[in-house]
Simulated assay, not measured.
Amino acid sequence: MSGRGSNEGVNRSNCSSTTLRKASRRLSLLYDAALAPCGLKTTQRAILAQIRRSEPASVGSLADALVMDSGALAHTLKPLERDGFIVHHINPEDRRQRLIKLTARGRSKLEESDTLWVQAQDAFDLALGKTESAMLRKALQSVLSDELAENFKRSLVNQNGFRTG
């Protein structure tokens, strides 16, 4: 039996999602090791850097920028707040919204991590190759695009009549 819905001939080791998740975990481990001297994990540094770029930031806008679920982000923010790297307060224009800002301690920690992050980035470029690294980032930007997400959803509907959220 072949056709729509058939698993015949599927190469499960060629799954884009699984390969990307594995690569992401590997890269996170490498960057975490590079950032270890400053005490931040890659995810924490990414969040602090995004806050620096967009502060004050709401949890929702921060989650959107980081392509994270708001609940998962709120959970990840707790240790950063506990350690005094961020503060949040109620948005005076919309009391339902919390605005997040870096503290002086958070800004200092982020600056401390900047040099380590640049070293990690340079090491990655050298290990993979500058051209390959640039091509990878370009491809990943395409994966992050809203256009890809819409095309993916449309393809699922066209293939199976499958509806996505």
Results as ranks from 00 to 15, higher is better:
S2C: 03
S2N: 13
G3N: 06
N7E: 13
V10M: 12
V10Y: 08
R12M: 10
R12I: 02
C15G: 05
C15Y: 03
A23L: 15
A23R: 12
A23K: 10
S24Q: 11
R26I: 05
L27N: 08
L27E: 06
S28W: 04
S28F: 04
S28Q: 11
S28M: 06
L29I: 01
L29E: 14
L29T: 08
L29D: 12
L30E: 05
D32A: 03
D32E: 00
D32R: 03
A33M: 05
L35M: 11
A36C: 06
A36N: 07
G39P: 07
L40C: 06
K41V: 05
T42N: 03
T43F: 04
Q44C: 03
R45V: 04
R45I: 02
I47D: 07
R53N: 11
A57D: 05
V59F: 01
V59M: 07
V59A: 13
G60Q: 13
G60L: 13
L62M: 04
L62D: 02
D64C: 12
A65H: 07
A65M: 06
L66D: 06
V67T: 02
V67I: 10
M68G: 01
G71F: 07
G71K: 15
G71R: 15
A72N: 14
L73F: 07
A74K: 14
T76S: 13
K78A: 11
L80E: 02
L80H: 03
R82A: 09
G84F: 02
F85G: 01
I86E: 04
H88E: 01
N91W: 00
D94Q: 04
R95P: 04
L99Y: 08
I100R: 05
K101N: 11
L102D: 04
L102N: 00
T103S: 08
T103M: 09
A104I: 06
R105V: 02
R107V: 00
S108Y: 09
K109P: 00
K109G: 00
E112C: 10
E112D: 14
T115N: 11
T115V: 14
L116R: 14
Q121E: 14
Q121A: 07
D122K: 14
D122F: 09
D122V: 13
D122E: 15
D122T: 12
F124S: 07
F124N: 06
D125V: 02
L126G: 07
L126R: 15
L128F: 11
G129R: 03
G129H: 03
G129C: 05
G129K: 07
T131G: 07
E132F: 10
S133C: 08
A134M: 03
A134I: 00
L136N: 03
R137C: 08
L140D: 01
L140S: 05
Q141P: 00
S142I: 02
S142H: 12
E147W: 10
L148Q: 10
N151E: 15
F152I: 06
R154C: 09
R154H: 12
S155Q: 13
Q159N: 12
Q159G: 09
Q159L: 15
N160S: 14
F162A: 13
R163K: 14
